[in-house]
Design a binder for these strands. Structure first.
Lengths: 215, 215
DNA sequence: TAATGGAAAGTGGTCAGACCACTTTTAAGC
DNA sequence: GCTTAAAAGTGGTCTGACCACTTTCCATTA
């Protein structure tokens, strides 16, 4: 049995070779790449294969093509762009930390949105959540966050967030502790009042607490 | 003389048509797309053009191809989030506003991240961009934003952002105007200095200008 | 009848060649 | 030397062909 991992897409291999060529040839941003015909000859592949690779790079914005003029490396700092390419090719998705960061970004933004809109601030759900905190002394953590995401009203952001949550290591039904209570109350209250800074601060406190308590 | 603005990349047009076809046909994630030969016939384009479009979508992770098997809308693959975005962006029509909002959110957050990290603020790319603004008086809009997203260092966010951009209605090569210059300079400068509020404000000004000037 | 095996059809992967449209370069003509 | 038209270069697209792989289908067999 051969290694399945070597099943690299061939057109990705071409993309990779293009990357090396750019590096080796020292082609700077804004400069011209060899023509498609030359590339196909140098890489020993058909012109159409070269084009498939180039179109991919174009959709990513890494190159620009001018009809009749040629193909050019996008201007500005190529080092970053080249490295970016590598991360795409090598499928470096292992950054779990990135998932957390993006998730928190969405949550924070949702809080901002809610604070800045009277109609969202006055949703009955906040009062309900606040009461629940008072009476039951505990609350499902993700329930609050989910309500926040839903209330912010962006379906795409909500979908992304749900996916991110699914990826997060944190169990869905984790209950909040007694210690979290004041933070949560502060968050919900300032949310209702539209105190953006206060709400954001409360949120960050909460996240900081969760981070430390889990380790 | 015709308007130069109509210089739509044809392979991008095919990408769009594919989107419509997927929506109209009701193709769900994980399901099979029509074969390349069928697509080329239905869209009245050559098979090679279809392939160029498909390869672009593949590099973005929106579709999967199996040699001899067919082409499929991404489903349970390496990155489910990519699949989610694929289905959302490819299928939902009226959600363009949501796409914009999420995109702007990612950009704003990236700006915040850069401002708060010395090593990111001092990247040479900012000086380069600033010089370019000074000398050439114009700059490709998305180039600046792309650099910001790359510099922020979150690959997941970058991947999300790239997909959002790929399906935004805004042309990739739109140049900034003379009026935008001060806003862009302010953004880049405050980015370098780490003035988060100033940078965010400049960004929002810029976006506000773009929104009004396009309508 | 159910299982098996292999042929046939379907599909993506790649290549070569041919045009076209547009840009850049070259060279002719003034 | 300058202008301008022809030529060369380059990306854009289509067609047809062949290969490699997968799926489907059906006849043969146990």
């Amino acid at each position: 049995m051969d290694k399945k991992q070597e099943n690299k897409k061939v057109f990705l291999e071409i993309v990779n070779q293009l990357r090396q060529l750019i590096k080796h040839e020292g082609i700077k941003p804004g400069e011209k790449l060899p023509s498609e015909r030359v590339l196909s000859e140098r890489l020993n592949v058909g012109r159409s294969s070269v084009r498939e690779a180039l179109r991919s790079l174009e959709l990513l914005g890494l190159i620009e093509t001018r009809h009749g003029g040629g193909t050019f490396l996008s201007s500005v700092s190529s080092n970053q762009l080249v490295e970016l390419l590598a991360s795409f090719i090598l499928q470096e998705n292992k950054a779990i930390e990135d998932v957390h960061i993006v998730r928190r970004m969405h949550e924070k933004e949702a809080i901002r949105v809610i604070c800045s809109e009277q109609s969202l601030r006055s949703l009955p759900v906040w009062e309900s959540l606040f009461m629940k905190l008072e009476l039951e002394n505990e609350i499902v953590r993700d329930l609050l966050l989910r309500e926040i995401m839903i209330a912010s009203g962006n379906r795409l952001a909500l979908k992304i967030w749900l996916q991110l949550v699914a990826y997060s290591a944190t169990p869905l039904k984790k209950l909040s502790t007694e210690e979290e209570k004041p933070m949560l109350q502060r968050l919900v209250k300032s949310l209702q009042l539209g105190y953006e800074n206060e709400a954001t601060s409360a949120y960050e406190n909460w996240m900081h607490y969760l981070k430390n308590s889990s380790s």
